[in-house]
Amino acid sequence: MKVPSLENDRVKLTLLDLSNFKHLLLVAQQENLTQYSPSDISTPEKLKEYVEIAVDGYYQKTIIPFIIYDKRMQAYAGSTRFGLINYKNKVLHIGWTWIGKEFQRTGLNVNMKFLMLQYAFETLEFDKVEFRIDERNTKSRKAVEKLGATLEGILRKDTLMLDGFKRSTCCYGILKEEWLNIKQTLL
């Protein structure tokens, strides 16, 4: 599988792996970055485990994990990925996204999601991109809705969180035929 490097004037997304994850150690230790995620990145060991799982998924061709570099701030900002990649049905998920607090609400997320959507629809020629978000995470839900994604339903109490809470997950989607209008809006 060819490793994409996605880049514009604001952000560069390159493959996250065991050779570069150390750039994220300080960012990952910020409080509440993954409070709505079942993933734990709170220590260097747990971040390494998180990356090892992502790398394994990359070799299984079900995940493409990225390290996020904010070109404006000249700093590594966090991580995101394509996941649950289904080549047969041409559907993938964008998610597992966490960025440091200093990068939030700066336009970084919109720029990287644009690049990822463009790659999914225009290079991979997939038919659908999905986003799965904790029902309580209103900030992420609003961000995905702002991108033009449609709420398709809510999976009730489907994911066990680290604290034992069983979250409900909002399922959003963007179809290939919606991408051109969304792209124009985002540009």
Rank of each mutant, 00 (worst) to 15 (best):
E45T: 02
D17S: 06
L26A: 13
S79Q: 06
V11Q: 12
F21K: 02
Q35W: 02
N32A: 11
T34N: 13
N32V: 02
Q74E: 15
I53P: 00
E45Y: 07
K12R: 15
R72D: 00
E31N: 14
Y59L: 10
W98H: 10
L33G: 06
R72F: 08
S5E: 14
K22F: 12
L33A: 03
Q35D: 11
F66K: 01
G95Q: 13
I63Y: 08
G83C: 13
S5W: 01
K90M: 14
Q74A: 14
G57I: 00
I85W: 01
Y59V: 02
R81C: 11
D70M: 08
N8A: 04
T43R: 08
R81K: 14
D9G: 03
E52L: 13
I53N: 09
A28T: 04
N20R: 04
D40P: 09
L84M: 12
P65Y: 03
I41D: 07
Y69H: 13
Q74G: 01
W96E: 10
T62N: 02
L26M: 13
Y50W: 14
K22W: 05
A75H: 07
I64W: 00
I99V: 15
T34A: 12
G100E: 12
I85L: 09
V91E: 12
G83P: 00
L13C: 04
G100I: 12
L15Y: 09
G78Q: 07
V55E: 09
T34I: 11
N20H: 10
E45N: 09
P38D: 15
L47F: 04
I64T: 01
D9N: 12
T43P: 03
S5N: 11
E49C: 06
K46G: 09
A77I: 03
A54Q: 10
K90S: 13
R10Q: 08
A75C: 05
G95E: 15
E45S: 11
D56N: 13
S42Y: 04
G78E: 05
L24A: 08
V91R: 13
E49T: 15
Y59M: 03
G100P: 11
